[in-house]
Nucleic acid binder design. Sequence first.
DNA 1: CGACCATTTGATATGGATCAAGCGATGTGG
DNA 2: CCACATCGCTTGATCCATATCAAATGGTCG
Lengths: 228, 228
Amino acid sequence: MLTQRAIPTGSSRGTNGLSHPVPAPNNALAGTIDMMGAAMPFARNAEIYGENEPADYLYKVVSGAVRTYKVLADGRRQVGAFCLPGDIFGLETGNEHTASAEAITNAKVLVVKRSALMALAGRDNEVARELWTVTGRELRRVQDQILLLIKTAKERVGGFLLDMAIRGAAGNQVELPMSRQDIADYLGLTIETVSRTLSDLESAAAIELPSSRRIVLRNRAALGLPNG
Amino acid sequence: MLTQRAIPTGSSRGTNGLSHPVPAPNNALAGTIDMMGAAMPFARNAEIYGENEPADYLYKVVSGAVRTYKVLADGRRQVGAFCLPGDIFGLETGNEHTASAEAITNAKVLVVKRSALMALAGRDNEVARELWTVTGRELRRVQDQILLLIKTAKERVGGFLLDMAIRGAAGNQVELPMSRQDIADYLGLTIETVSRTLSDLESAAAIELPSSRRIVLRNRAALGLPNG
DNA sequence: CGACCATTTGATATGGATCAAGCGATGTGG
DNA sequence: CCACATCGCTTGATCCATATCAAATGGTCG
């Protein structure tokens, strides 16, 4: 069931929910995942897991990028997170995934059996504490996403670019692995508004757009962040 | 510092963040809080804690209602949660509160020292697991709040009423402890839009408004929920 | 080279914000 | 006990940011 999905370039389905990326904590948990995890390749757009499926595994991105998302009954999709190398995702406190996850690009992902990690947490307090910490970090990230969603389009796009720049850690160069539609669904906007906002930021000399997936930040203060 | 705040009917300040209410888990943690907690009264609008303050305590509502919120640099306020009797709030994985908390009405709250609970969690795996579970439950709640924020005004208000009805567990009767401004800041709308939407729902016979704080659900299907 | 898909750009529509009064309940002081 | 001030809520008129509808452009792959 996991392996069945590893190869096919899956389609975009899913039901309805959000999900998690968490900067790899530099600690026992991350090390444990690296030790215990089985590396699996996922093709672009392949489903890694679906919402409401048993959360038997958790994941850590090695290379490539992953999106988690929920789809509402009317078809609207909300992307909950973009997971980059080092990020942990799919960790649940309940028994089912609360969102679906797909590879955005061809990606390599470490897969760890949850039951094994839970058993370890039962013996090792540090691991238990770190599982909690990872969930807490994800909680803060989602809370920040809410703050982003109440802002203007310019602030949302600016905040998103800033976040990607920080996470990419490549200075002012940002290489976006995801489509405009992914960004729009993450920010609660339409692709047209995302595209227009990027064009506006370029006109305002806040960014450069050498290509649609490559962005150079030129003036961070001009990224439309009147607030935090 | 805690007691100083217990009596005064504090003013509404705060810095910038979100927070958590969690339906009291019917388990060891809830029992422990009930045992270890010191009951404290807070007057209407009194601050319980402020964002970025040391998270030395966590809380459980006994009676009344509490709101957690963040304030952006430009003054916009985002209410993160409404906490009702039984709800746990102020539980952090980090050392600082990520939001501020205030009593909405005069309220009685159980206060527990975090260090004591953490020490207990170090000895008792079940308590440790439940702390994690509470954070995970809060994470799902915040994820649901994001889904609400991408909907139309009618859907947001409808979803909010439905949620309050379920939590209040008083059938179709809903007694709202919070103001229209609180609701607006929770839903990412203005008070005018909240008020108008309620009026519209009343015209559409979906609800009755015997008074501004009392609402009767008449037709749940008509609460504008084309989706989940 | 041609087809397809992602992205940009343009024109128009609209939901919710903003600006501005009114209204009703609550509470206070005379 | 009542008049008045205050506060929270509702309602109205208008504006604007973003969605929607539509078309052109550009980049990629066979």
